[in-house]
Structure formats: structure tokens, C-alpha cells
Amino acid sequence: MNEKIKQNRREFLKKGAQFGLVATAGGVMLTQYFSEPTMAGNEGEMVELMTTEGDLVLVPKSQVEEHHNESAYNPREGFVDKKFVMVVDLAKCKNAKKCQSACNKGHYITGDNAWLKIYKMQESEETAPYWMPTQCQHCDKPPCVKVCPVDATFKRKDGIVLIDNERCIGCRFCMAACPYSVRIFNWDEPKQAELIIDDEPYTPDYCGKPSVKGTVDKCDFCPHETAKGELPFCVKACPNDVFAFGDMYEDAVTNGSGQTFQLSKLLKDRGAHRFMESLGTEPSVYYLPPVDRSDDFEVGLDNYTPNQSVFKDLE
């Protein structure tokens, strides 16, 4: 018994000593932290920054370190300081299909397969039908990437899932693995000769330029457009502002009309969900439920062509 108390006390002392050490070290760091601004304050230059909550604060310029992305842009790494997301507002979709035709045109899609599809969805007989655009969900845990035997399809740091069609062996395991059925295969020769006029070298971040027979294609989230400061083809083309696209780290998404929303607030206020969340694929695409709809569901029926794939609408 006595022995035990002694031991406990010894342990307490030991821990106390350790705590003391940590406290001293912390103190040193704190003083350093506080002393620097006073030095910088002499120069007196302040900059205005936005916090993650959206508030503006004034910070001494010396405290701000400009972040440079040292490594050159690599199509396999992507934009290392971004995380692309898309929000699809199901309340606004009227099956106009402008997104699909813009995507087909922009990516030189010639086959019988569109990467972006608009499904007529209805959960059950008693519930209301709605239109649902789907494309690659750019999952954070992509089942397609997991099964690829040759690292042809890959996940970038900015969240985009791409395919290197010079690497792809055409085994189609990724297509079997994808629960969203968004991957398409070039069964035939793509015949894009007349469509692609410039002769820029192939890069995996422009899917479809060119498509290659015997390999897999899919939505690339348009990094070739965002790099130019433009929105993806589908976002820009939608007349109803169904799509909004942006960077999760900036907590902002922008729709085709140029309106910008705070992402976290939009997702919270509108009760967003992701497609087949239960599978654990962690998509980068969020859907806002089809409530308080801007128009009747029936409006979209005019464009409803369940057995036609590529919607040819070139104005």
C-alpha cells in the first residue's frame, strides 16, 4: 500500500516536471509571437484579409507570408492549393440539355455516348419526379482509381479524377467499379479529325482531345477551362443556373450567371446531399433537393429522349 502511494507520488512529480518543461517552451514561443508584431508594427503596414468565416480583418503585412507554389504545374498533381467542387440545384433543372450539348461540343464527343446525362428520376410512385444531371462525381475515394491496374486513371490533389488515355489498356474495370455509370468507352474510332483543329500536345487534363479508340473517357471537370479563369462548359451553358462550381478551400461556388455563393452556407441552408452517399465514395458533387421548384417538371418532357444519347444542339 505504502509502496503504491510512493510510486504514485513519484509519477506525479515526474509528470509535473514534464508539464513545466512544456509550459516554459510554450512561453518562449508565445513571447516570440508577440514580439515580432511590435517589430513589424514599426513599419506600420497593414493588409486586409478574409477569414474562413468571411469576416475582414487587418493584419500586419510582415505577418503575412505570400504563398508560392514552387513546383511547376503537373497534370497528374493538379492545382495543389485547390479543391474543386460542384453544386447542382435540382430545383432549377428543366432538362434543357444545354449542359450536355455544350459538354459534347467542348470535349469533341463524337460517339453514341455523352459524359453528362440528365436522368428522369423518381424515388417512388407517390413522390414527385425531377430531372437530375449527372457526370463524373470526382469522388474523394474513387472506386475507379482503386481498381485501375496501370495507374491510368488517377486522383489529383485538387480533387479531380482524370484518365491518361496514353496509359489506359482498355480493361474497363474502372467502368465496372463506378456505381454512377459515368465512364464511357471508345468502342469505335472516335473520328474527331475535323473537330480538333489546333495541334496542341495531348494532356490528360483535357479529356476527349483527342479520344482514343480502346480507352475510357469521362467528365474531366474542365481544368482546361478553370486554368483560363472560365467556368466548366456545363456551368456556363446552363440557362437556369443549375450548376455552380468553385474551390472548397475558398468556400465559394459560382454559377453560370456569375453569382457567387458561400459553399458551406449554401449546402447547409438548402440541405444538400451527395449521390449514393451510402457507398462511401465521397463525391465532390453536391445536389440541392428539388424543392420549391422554379418550374413544373413537365416542362422538361419536351427534351426527354431516353433512347438518344448525344443531344445534338449546336444552335
Partner: peptide
């Protein structure tokens, strides 16, 4: 598939 068989040629 999990998604509806839609938007493709019927022969598929």
C-alpha cells in the same frame, strides 16, 4: 446499373 438505363441507344 444503379442509374436508370437512359440517354443511350436502346440496343445498349
Amino acid at each position: 446499373p444503379f442509374v436508370p438505363l437512359e440517354g443511350t441507344p436502346e440496343s445498349w
